[in-house]
Design a protein around this nucleic acid. Sequence first.
RNA 1: CGGGGCGUAGCGCAGUUGGUAGCGCGCAGCGUUCGGGACGCUGAGGUCGGAGGUUCAAGUCCUCUCGCCCCGACCA
Length: 585
Amino acid sequence: MRFSKLFGKTLRQAPAEAESVSHQLLLRAGMIAQEAAGIYSYLPMGWRVLKKIENIIREEMDKAGGQELMLPVLQPFELWQQSGRYVSFGKSLFTLTDRKEHTLALGPTHEEVITDLVHRYVQSYRELPLLLYQIQTKLRDEPRPRSGLLRVREFIMKDLYSFDADEAGLDESYQKMCKAYRNIYARLGLPTLVVEADSGAIGGKESHEFMVLTEGGEDEVIYCSSCGYAANVEKAQFAKTAETVIPVSRNPESSEGEAKNLLSLEEIATPGTKAIEEVADFVGVPTSQTLKSVFYYADGEFIFVITRGDLEVNETKLRNALKCSDLRLATESEVNEAGLVAGFASPIGVKGVKVVADDSITLGSNFVVGANKPGYHFRNANYPRDFQVDLMADIALAQPGDSCLRCQGKLSLARGIEVGHVFKLGTFISERFGASFLDNDGKSRPIVMGCYGIGLGRLLAAIVEQSHDDQGIIWPLSVAPYQVYLCPLSLDKPMVAPTAEKIYQELQKEGIEVLFDDRDDSPGVKFNDADLLGIPLRLTLSPRTLQSQSVEAKWRMEKEAQLLPLENLAVQMKKLLDEAVKAQS
RNA sequence: CGGGGCGUAGCGCAGUUGGUAGCGCGCAGCGUUCGGGACGCUGAGGUCGGAGGUUCAAGUCCUCUCGCCCCGACCA
């Protein structure tokens, strides 16, 4: 490709709307262009990268036994009613009506379509296992598109669906996919961490995410460096320490003789203390000896949530515990309307309200808790002596510094980009679509499903987030839009232009992908563009190098250049590139 | 949806008490340059996001509206 003819120009300054590194660099390099919030065009450079990523994914899916097919974007809304998932997807599901006033959905994912399809074609265990995949556009009306390609409303995704006869088969398919995913990320030069994840709107029981750890990521990962435990913060568990009981009462007689050292409930004045820290300070106890009350609306129902005062509520865990789809904090006036005193609310004596508690409230005793009266708290509140809860679950947010549930090591937190997500769906979708098969006993059983997704654009952006310097992108050879940047300087000087032209032809004949900077620009412009675009190998020729019958070769990620003789250049280049590919894998 | 910010040339920005729009980059032409974003001259490019209002006069003031970005609740 001749640079002078390339569509999409490089920019010195990034457009103001771009904030994340990948967004800025991809815009500046002329690889993508924005059309609307979360909607992008791929320009020729960016599209070449995307297609290379796509091919790597396709190769690995095929190698794992996947069969590629193509499912429709336009889907009958009835499929979504049948699965029931139009509820969990909510407003993220784009819908439209056709000329006959029939509602159609724009596919945010394809479990419905493929399960409907498989149910019509698969009847016997002999046809299982089955791995079907596609690479195509998904549409989701995300509440907030973000960070360029990292979170968009229209995106290309590889989605594979596994169909197995039983759980053991699903485990096998799941492992096969995890391995294929690891191969893909390795070939893209992308270090990833596999973390336990919440399955969200997709549903299912077990799921893992593949995370690229980087500052710009929007996910948070909790991990333990001693035992290797890692989970999305939405899912992460931790060891809740049992707090040692500090007797808070000055009544010595009540602190003796009790099996669990439970003291009697006592109302105390705590004027002006609303926040947990203020209350704890005022009473003189650690926050872990207080109880925190938080209020939510879950699918329209008012919920009273209690955790130990040192812990925060994990809304994903809470949502799962409540099995609700819509969850939001209640406003202060809603709290008051529920008959509670915001800041001094108490589970003691509360009536007609659903109470959910984190199981940490059983690890400790004699807690300080609101008295539901302005300016007053109780001390020595104990569950279940003083109050009841409707639901007890783990709904606490893991935080860095907490202890690992498995090994007691210290947990750490890192930001990451979710570049892949695999789910063990089980049978809840196949059952709704009647996707069953006859086993070898002639018994009808639901097909056990899994699904496995990779967002290609996000993957592309993740590579940039993770592989760049202040000059621009550094593409791994496997996905670079071109392998070689041919960069002649002083084109009007004798021999430069014709030699460059000749090299350009020879390299192409050798099957090397070349971006030929045939522009009559100064060296600085050319070098800066070469770096910005991130082409792995730069070949510079100038009167200076031609004097010694050579050209200069420089790797994008290295500082030093080497001189290569003009003679047999294409063959040498081919060798260089092949060696680099080998070194990478 | 809640909170914050921004819409003026392709990109980055300026525009004073309201007086009819400018700078840098980029783009076109000519010339001089040529190993890390060179320089000179000439030139093209604007419904000032949109609608309504106030005014002799609106990029500037008022009202409404649309779009985009960032922080939160959602996801590949």
